[in-house]
């Protein structure tokens, strides 16, 4: 990435004003993937001086500032309480400690990275994003929006709910991007399933979830739900594996995930 000028924002209003000057201007999150892009940015805007890296737990929800690093997030006890530690479980499989000390949760969300190991479990939770201009938007609505959003992500709010969680990253080596990642959670409202790195962005398996949440949970219905996930979601072929392979592996790990969160082991 080529950056022609850099502006250290003094306030959110200042950052937004500079962002609005040119469609090609950009907010820089952690900057972990800057080297992977060939883009030219007239003005990069840094939020590092705005103290947007706090995590607050008010008992009903956890609010995480957009400049919070993935390691800060994974180490926070309130985050660990969500669905059997599912978020730290996903975060701690993202490359190494050093990278996670710079990568921010805001950058991960705004990038809508299809390979993200964090977005897959996060999508299953009740997550509200707070933008400087647009106000509040659910994470799933944001991820489904097409194109770039010319706004500043201030924070994300995760509703605190108790339940069980399962996360599986399928990768060729420990430090590699996921061939596929699978997240399953259960709470008093039922079951949720999402698959990411298909290779496109994480998506919930809505039809399989509806089936599962309207039937008795047993080995047979778990197997059927896993099969439906592999049929419902679209898988694609990339250098990591074929669409058939991803669908097949996805079915296996959804089945294992459902067994784990429902206590229906073999």
């Amino acid at each position: 990435m080529r950056i022609e000028n850099y502006h250290r924002a003094t306030s959110l209003a200042d950052a937004y004003n500079h962002l609005s000057l040119n469609k090609k201007n950009a907010i820089i999150g952690g900057g972990g993937w800057l080297k992977l892009s060939g883009k030219k940015i007239p003005l990069a805007i840094g939020l590092e001086g705005l103290a947007l890296d706090a995590i607050e737990d008010d008992g009903e929800s956890i609010t995480i500032g957009s400049m919070t690093t993935l390691n800060q997030m994974a180490a926070h006890p309130s985050v660990a309480e969500l669905y059997s530690n599912i978020l730290p479980e996903a975060i701690n499989q993202i490359m190494g400690v050093a990278l996670r000390n710079i990568v921010t949760v805001g950058g991960t969300i705004m990038g809508k990275y299809p390979f993200s190991d964090l977005l897959t479990p996060l999508l299953l939770m009740d997550v509200t994003l707070e933008f400087y201009k647009e106000g509040h938007l659910s994470l799933s609505d944001f991820l489904n929006q097409k194109g770039r959003m010319d706004d500043i992500l201030v924070s994300l709010k995760i509703a605190k709910k108790t339940g069980k969680g399962y996360f599986k990253k399928v990768a060729k080596t420990a430090l590699d991007f996921a061939v596929l990642n699978v997240a399953v959670i259960s709470n008093d409202l039922g079951y949720k399933i999402a698959i990411g790195s298909r290779p496109s962005r994480a998506k919930m398996a809505e039809e399989a979830m509806t089936y599962l949440n309207n039937t008795e949970i047993n080995q047979e219905t778990i197997n059927e739900a896993a099969k439906r996930v592999s049929q419902e979601l679209k898988f694609g072929t990339n250098h990591c594996g074929s669409a058939e392979y991803k669908a097949s592996v996805g079915e296996v790990y959804v089945r294992r995930g459902l067994r784990e969160v429902s206590n229906h082991e073999d």
Binding site: L34, K35, G46, A98, N101
Partner: peptide, 28 residues
């Protein structure tokens, strides 16, 4: 040079970071 190998690791405020992908303008 893309955060994958760890050889460029330095400590930033006592925490390891990949120096190949950290913008120097943020060092203030």
């Amino acid at each position: 040079d893309t955060t994958s190998c760890g050889v460029c690791t330095v400590l930033l405020d006592d925490k390891p970071v990949p120096s190949c992908s950290f913008l120097s303008v943020r060092l203030d």
